[in-house]
Simulated assay, not measured.
Amino acid sequence: MNSQHFYKIKITTKILLSFVFFTAFLFSGTVTFAQKKDFVVVLDAGHGGKDPGKVGYRNIKEKNVALKIVLQIGKLLEKEKNIKVIYTRKTDVFVDLWERGSIANRANADLFVSIHCNAHTSQAYGAETWVLGTHANKQNFEIAKSENSVILLEENYEEKYKGFNPNKPESIIGLTLMQEEYLDQSIQLASIIQHRFKTELKRKDRGVKQAGFVVLYQTYMPSVLIETGFITNKIEGPYLNSNAGSKKIANSIYKDIIQYKNQLALNSVADSDIPKKIDEKPKESTSQKTVSNNSNIIYKVQIAAGARKLTTKSYNFKGIKNVERVKVGRIYRYYIGSTSNYKNIKEKQKYARKKGYKSAFIVAFKNGNRIPLEKVLSKS
């Protein structure tokens, strides 16, 4: 199969999926849970079989730690009503990256969570959660390259990944396009995960990061890759490998998924948010503040996103006024606030959460283009 034919198939698949979601939307009030009753979570234990992943302190293998954590997360989730759990692997077998994403896509999953462990020549430690994005620096690229190199162990990888070389930065540049509309939700979950690691488990927070992971690129839903810790660290490695440690990590991630699911329901634009009679004709919303070429950074708070195009009147948003609507792909994003003062936008975020938008989060723009908030804050 040549690369041109492959991309035609990918595009056709996206169109068909778009039609399915659009049709479901017409017959259901809520976009997020339309078409099906269960919230489907795909749990992916990294590596496996002939691919041990990273090998750490006292020969601790990443594949074993990842599987142990995944099985414990799954066991907890399976006790929840209206949640269906699907595993990419439940035993020590090799599953190629392509198939991992395909499993999630075939299941029409709502969430894809991939579990991994980190390694380093130093005694580095701590947890970090990744979402798809072009590598922001050499270090991020090297991490993605390490995970993506698994494809070299797959049969016929030259044909399956024609044109993709995990060792070349240019191969990663286009990976974000397919996941762009899910990036906000991926970051939302990643932020929840890191917050709980830090506050409840007292793990070192290495942050939410972006890089070109093939396993995330393959999925058509919000997706995260969690590096639960460093198995090369003399303390953290045995902790992750222990029954007690892996159980705590699994329980934390389980809580994160439940919190994300609940927040998603709260922040979905549903028919229940729209009055039976609308007296005013919907009008296009414009930005509350024009960003000029001389502006530096503009912050906004995203309160909701969905396929429904709503008039930006306060009655549609729990009494919140001055809502801005922006269309990105097939998704409408709804913002409040537009300021270069970070303190002021934090107050806007608190206000939105008090009004019921519990997962409202801050986004940053430079010269009208959205940029990673972490990048802005790191330079502050």
Results as ranks from 00 to 15, higher is better:
residue 292 S to M: 02
residue 77 L to V: 10
residue 137 N to E: 15
residue 272 S to T: 09
residue 140 N to R: 08
residue 36 K to I: 07
residue 102 S to L: 15
residue 73 I to D: 03
residue 166 P to N: 07
residue 237 G to W: 01
residue 191 S to C: 10
residue 102 S to M: 14
residue 41 V to L: 03
residue 279 D to G: 07
residue 308 R to A: 04
residue 378 S to H: 09
residue 167 N to A: 01
residue 80 E to H: 01
residue 311 T to V: 07
residue 312 T to Q: 07
residue 261 K to Y: 10
residue 309 K to W: 11
residue 38 D to L: 08
residue 298 I to P: 00
residue 14 K to G: 00
residue 128 E to W: 02
residue 212 G to T: 05
residue 109 A to G: 15
residue 135 H to S: 12
residue 111 L to D: 01
residue 98 W to E: 04
residue 27 F to R: 00
residue 352 A to G: 09
residue 246 S to F: 15
residue 125 Y to T: 01
residue 253 I to W: 05
residue 212 G to W: 10
residue 163 G to E: 08
residue 330 R to K: 08
residue 340 S to L: 11
residue 151 I to M: 09
residue 97 L to N: 03
residue 322 N to Q: 12
residue 117 C to A: 10
residue 368 G to M: 00
residue 124 A to Q: 07
residue 179 Q to D: 08
residue 312 T to A: 12
residue 66 A to K: 06
residue 141 F to A: 11
residue 94 F to S: 07
residue 48 G to P: 14
residue 310 L to I: 13
residue 185 Q to K: 09
residue 111 L to F: 04
residue 43 L to H: 06
residue 21 F to N: 10
residue 19 F to V: 06
residue 367 N to W: 12
residue 30 T to L: 03
residue 306 G to V: 07
residue 78 E to T: 14
residue 105 N to P: 13
residue 99 E to W: 13
residue 160 K to E: 02
residue 49 G to E: 10
residue 230 F to L: 07
residue 226 I to V: 15
residue 17 L to Y: 15
residue 113 V to H: 03
residue 348 K to Q: 13
residue 18 S to I: 12
residue 293 N to F: 08
residue 27 F to K: 00
residue 109 A to E: 01
residue 347 E to H: 02
residue 242 S to F: 14
residue 102 S to I: 10
residue 45 A to W: 05
residue 212 G to C: 13
residue 275 P to C: 06
residue 268 S to H: 05
residue 85 V to R: 06
residue 94 F to D: 05
residue 305 A to R: 08
residue 334 Y to G: 01
residue 214 V to N: 05
residue 185 Q to E: 15
residue 129 T to V: 15
residue 333 R to K: 10
residue 132 L to F: 03
residue 79 K to S: 05
residue 324 E to I: 04
residue 322 N to D: 05
residue 76 L to Q: 09
residue 251 N to C: 02
residue 108 N to L: 14
residue 361 F to Q: 00
residue 268 S to L: 00
residue 219 T to M: 11
residue 279 D to M: 10
residue 49 G to L: 12
residue 178 M to V: 08
residue 134 T to V: 06
residue 303 I to Y: 05
residue 235 I to P: 03
residue 33 F to S: 10
residue 260 Y to K: 00
residue 26 L to P: 03
residue 11 I to V: 11
residue 262 N to L: 02
residue 18 S to T: 13
residue 30 T to Y: 00
residue 50 K to A: 10
residue 52 P to M: 01
residue 6 F to N: 03
residue 168 K to A: 03
residue 131 V to F: 02
residue 72 Q to C: 03
residue 327 K to M: 02
residue 330 R to I: 12
residue 161 Y to F: 11
residue 56 G to T: 13
residue 126 G to K: 06
residue 149 S to I: 12
residue 315 Y to D: 03
residue 352 A to E: 01
residue 90 K to F: 11
residue 82 N to E: 13
residue 65 V to L: 00
